[in-house]
């Protein structure tokens, strides 16, 4: 998936890109998400600004690349939850719990949400199409395979991915009635959603 574009680049180039993105993350954590910090990023990475432009680009390109990298790391971390040998409903409850906990512990995301919510929140709501698209391309082959292997019920894979992403984004962007601060509360609330929507058929079995 994303590996395709990455492996096209030589390993040394890849290393420089990683260094730039690591530096960008550090700099933004102290200067803010939207401050103009291209020079600082270059300095922190120990590179010249032209080199940073050559390997990643301007600050917007760095931001986009960082967002893509962090999103893909996030997806990689979440993926094993889908293949555990437990009932499907529990897999999704665990997956959403895991995803929200992971994102709540993500330093840069939380920094952005606290310091500049008006800049960050739109990317989790009205401008969430790129995240949705990344999720689709990352998870759709796996979901299709799991449906094929009868590991998952026969659902529309893209609709399934979309609605799960919606639930996760909502939990990250919106304060609800239940603060769900602890992992246990969060899991209990997600469990109840699936309990409610899945209840009737279980009873009439």
């Amino acid at each position: 998936m994303t590996q395709g574009t990455r492996s096209a680049r030589p390993a040394a180039d890849e290393e420089i890109r990683e260094r730039i993105l690591d530096a960008a993350q550090d700099v933004m954590l102290s200067a803010g998400i939207t401050a103009r910090v291209h020079a600082q990023i270059a300095e922190r990475a120990g590179l010249s600004r032209p080199t940073v432009y050559k390997y990643v680009g301007d600050q917007d390109a760095i931001m986009a690349a960082l967002l893509e990298r962090e999103t893909n790391r996030f997806f990689d971390a979440v993926t094993p939850q889908l293949e555990r040998d437990i009932p499907v409903r529990e897999r999704f409850v665990d997956l959403i719990t895991f995803a929200v906990t992971y994102a709540r512990e993500h330093a840069l995301l939380q920094f952005g949400l606290q310091q500049e919510p008006e800049k960050v929140l739109p990317w989790l709501t009205i401008y969430a199409a790129p995240i949705m698209q990344l999720a689709l391309s990352h998870f759709e082959p796996l979901i299709l395979r799991l449906i094929e292997e009868k590991e998952l019920p026969e659902v529309d894979s893209s609709l399934l991915i979309e609605i799960i992403v919606r639930l996760i984004l909502s939990l990250l962007s919106t304060p609800g009635l239940n603060p769900s601060q602890s992992r246990e509360d969060l899991k209990a609330n997600i469990d109840m959603l699936f309990h409610v929507v899945g209840h009737i058929v279980n009873r009439s079995d």
Binding site: L159, I163, G198
Partner: peptide, 23 residues
């Protein structure tokens, strides 16, 4: 229909392996 996908997940409370092995 979109919401129905959630129901399908909510109803899947048995282990898929045991289900398919039986089948």
């Amino acid at each position: 229909q979109h919401l129905n996908v959630l129901f399908d997940i909510g109803m899947a409370t048995t282990r898929p392996h045991s289900g398919s092995a039986m089948a």
